[in-house]
Amino acid sequence: MTAATVVTFPSGAVTGSGTVVRVEGDVVVLDATPFHPVDHTWPDQPGDAGVLRSSSGSAAVSDTLMAAVSDDGSFAVGADIPVKRGGQGWTWLVGHRLADAAPAWLIPGVVVEADVDAPLRGGLSRGHTACHLASLALDAALADLWRKEIRVDPLGNPDFEGLANQSSRIHADGSVDEYRLGKSLRKAGFDSEGFAASVAERQARINELLAGWVASAAASRIDVEGPTIVDRRTWRCDLPEGEVGFLCGGTHVASLAEFASITVSLDLSDPQLLVMTTTAVPAQ
Results as ranks from 00 to 15, higher is better:
H171M: 15
V199F: 04
V38E: 11
G25P: 12
A59S: 07
A99L: 08
L163R: 15
D223R: 13
V230Y: 00
A283N: 12
A211K: 15
D238K: 07
V281M: 09
D144N: 10
G50R: 09
C131V: 05
L210R: 05
G18M: 00
M276F: 02
G50E: 02
F160T: 08
G226W: 00
P240G: 04
V230C: 01
E161K: 04
V14D: 12
R202M: 07
T19R: 11
A172F: 11
S261M: 01
V27K: 06
V83Y: 11
A197M: 11
R121A: 10
V61F: 03
A215C: 11
L163Q: 14
V77C: 02
W90H: 05
D48P: 09
H252W: 01
L185M: 03
P103Y: 11
T19H: 05
T277N: 12
A143R: 13
N207E: 04
K187C: 08
E193T: 14
S192R: 15
R169G: 11
R169P: 06
L30A: 01
G162W: 09
N157G: 09
G122E: 12
V264S: 02
E193G: 07
P103F: 14
V214L: 09
H40F: 15
A60L: 11
I229M: 05
M1R: 09
D267E: 07
G245I: 03
P240A: 11
L142S: 09
T251L: 10
